[in-house]
Simulated assay, not measured.
Amino acid sequence: MSDNQGEMSIVDHLGELRKRIIYILVVLLVGLIIGLVCANPIYKYLISVDTAKNFQLNAFAFWDGIGMYMKIAMVVALVLTIPFTAYQLWAFVSPGLREVERKAALRYVPYAFILFVIGMAFGYYVVFPMALGFTTTITKNMGLAETYGISQYFNFMFTLVVPIALLFELPLIVMFLTKLRILNPRRLRKMRKMSYFALVFIAVVITPPDFISDFLVTIPLLLLYEFSVYLSSAVYRKQLAADEAADEAAEERYAFPANLE
């Protein structure tokens, strides 16, 4: 009987997860529609900034223009879906949390959107101009004619900007996992060397192969990790204090009848 109940429990969890994923896909579809509506003004802004003014973008295929609109729409949909996805993740795990933990974790949802937007701004206004300037300088030094396609330009942009924006979610993810007691500051400190190596590797991969660009991207990523450790420590201290208060309250409840005797 207990095995059947356990099996049903697993089935229920899978059904709940499936429902949450469907919700996310629906919001992603709505975001794509909104993104397509906003694609043209966003495109006009992106090609009007100083980074793009120096380039004459060309279409090398009939689908380049439509493909560019779809890429912009996908990024818009991703921005809109990130906080909703965070909420759905919270809704999925919240039954296993205490009331205080549920309320605290729910506060993280708006910050998922804020951090993603900050990450996109950092990627677009800091990393992307550096990478573009480096590659075009090399091209000119080689005496090559610069003829860029619109698809290549936006692919290059989104390949840099979107991963950086996702990396900016690291503090929020660490706080959430600490709240679930999956991570703690002690474990994060033990993982520091491995995490630093991974972040430096990511920075080197997504930036031009020069020390200055690598340094300018690596430092914010390492600071993000240390900030994540700090936030994890703050959450962990509150958890320990809450556990200690709960233990003291339990001891008082059990000690009270004994005192009456």
Score class of each variant (00 low, 15 high):
I219Y: 14
Y225Q: 03
D210T: 09
L224S: 12
P208V: 07
L223E: 13
F227C: 00
F215Q: 03
I206R: 08
F211V: 15
D210F: 04
E226A: 14
V205K: 10
Y225T: 02
V205I: 14
F215C: 05
D210P: 01
I212L: 14
P220L: 04
P209D: 03
L199C: 08
L221G: 02
T218R: 07
T207G: 05
F211D: 06
Y225S: 06
V200L: 15
V204F: 05
E226S: 03
F227E: 01
L199W: 14
V205F: 15
V205R: 01
V204A: 07
F201S: 14
S228L: 11
I202P: 03
V204I: 15
D214T: 15
A203F: 15
L216Y: 08
L216R: 02
V217P: 00
S213W: 00
T207A: 12
V204H: 01
V217K: 00
T207H: 04
D210Y: 09
V204E: 03
L221I: 07
V200R: 05
L221R: 13
I219L: 14
A203T: 04
V200E: 04
P220Y: 01
A203Y: 15
V217N: 07
L222F: 05
I206P: 03
I212Q: 07
L223H: 09
F211C: 09
V205L: 12
L199T: 02
V200S: 01
L222S: 10
F211R: 04
L222N: 01
I219F: 08
L223T: 07
I206Y: 03
L222D: 05
I202C: 10
V204Y: 01
A203W: 12
F211Q: 13
I202A: 14
A203Q: 14
